[in-house]
Design a protein around this nucleic acid. Structure first.
Lengths: 213, 213
DNA sequence: TTGACAACATACCGGGTAGTATGTTCATCA
DNA sequence: TGATGAACATACTACCCGGTATGTTGTCAA
């Protein structure tokens, strides 16, 4: 259900560049990352990158977009889920959190992209791209927002302000992009265990009724 | 109980510079902020800043340290609180969250400082300062960590991994530094209401028993 | 086989910015 | 009162990095 980069990029050259860029941007941030850094990680030079992307900002935007594309694709199968609300929310939250862990470099770049978009203060053309990203991510957030809103009106969840609750929920679910690191010898079960704890925290935070874990 | 910058800086000149720097760093981030930006906000020039701080990195570090100083000072009165654990945790969490809102520029810079420290990749001397910041903040985090650990062993809280729970709790409590903006006409009660919702979310997330709000 | 184009590498330029070196003003104190 | 130094402003330098212009290699079609 979770997707990797290459399934989105049939063109290997682009996938390699995007992956290297995502890693660099994650490690040092947008401004501190030079195109030469990305090229060095690829074992190549600037020329290769500028042949495919007109500017650094476009490369960054593409990494962000790819990250969000993967998120949308991951929860897409759950759009038609007809389970009860709490089950549906739990599935969505679990998939989302797993996504944060398994495509962490991209998700962290998305986070910085959203921050840059909110700050403003860039060139008009880049502004356009970042605003697109913002709308793209807001649309994604609205999917969850709607579910927890329904959940509250059905007595499944209990909270006051919908906007605040949504923010807090996403902060919890997204948080692994900041503190998760793959331990050597970590099993699939270990990771599932972490994800479960994160989702449980968010569910309880939303005032959700306890369900069988 | 919450403290402002000037109470920490008897020297007004330093307080002005730190406040301007905090605002600039918050708005554009460390790398994208030039010393001239800070000077411009002060209605001054570079000379003034370099007269007090040897380098940009030192100014940044000082902003971080000041932010953490304010946090420590804010919860200091609660160290000797002999109330029951849930009450004590709630008071600490409330003070902390209020701190995030009322000194938001500084707290946001602290966040970026921690990120820079975790990434590494800087000059050795700055590395030293950032590592100091990291230890300083970890010490602060341990205060909360101990309280929720005790709370769990006394049946007040319920969660699995202590480290993960602490991370998730702080993500929730810190989150206003990302999404809080002061609304025009916002009253003191409005702000208290926001803080209460954040604290409630975190408490429930930790598996805390509901108490009278 | 050759021309033409894609996919890069190499070499270079220009703007922005951290940091410095030097002036200038003003207060304080011997 | 003049000497001294703190607290800045001004002027300048050096470097890094984004972007471009040009060179090189391989492939493929006619």
């Amino acid at each position: 259900m979770t997707l990797s980069v290459r399934e989105f990029m049939p063109d290997i050259a682009h996938a390699d560049i995007l992956e290297a860029a995502a890693l660099c941007f994650m490690e040092r941030g947008y401004n501190a990352t030079s195109i030469d850094d990305v090229a060095r990680r690829l074992g190549a030079t600037k020329g290769r990158i500028y042949h495919h992307y007109p500017a650094k900002a476009d490369l960054f935007a593409k990494v962000c977009r790819t990250g969000m594309d993967m998120n949308y694709a991951a929860i897409e199968p759950l759009r038609n889920d007809s389970s009860d609300l709490l089950t549906r929310w739990t599935r969505m939250a679990t998939v989302h959190t797993r996504q944060m862990i398994e495509t962490r470099p991209f998700q962290r770049v998305v986070w910085e992209g959203v921050e840059l978009a909110l700050r403003g203060s860039t060139t008009p053309q880049q502004r356009e791209e970042l605003d697109d990203l913002l709308r793209y991510r807001n649309g994604y957030g609205d999917i969850f927002r709607e579910v927890i809103a329904q959940g509250r009106s059905h007595g499944v969840f209990e909270f006051e302000d919908l906007g605040i609750a949504n923010q807090l929920m996403f902060m919890a679910l997204n948080s692994p992009i900041f503190w998760y690191t793959r331990r050597p010898g970590e099993t699939e079960a270990d990771r599932d265990n972490i994800i479960r704890q994160v989702v449980t925290f968010a569910m309880r935070g939303l005032g959700g009724k306890r369900q069988t874990q």
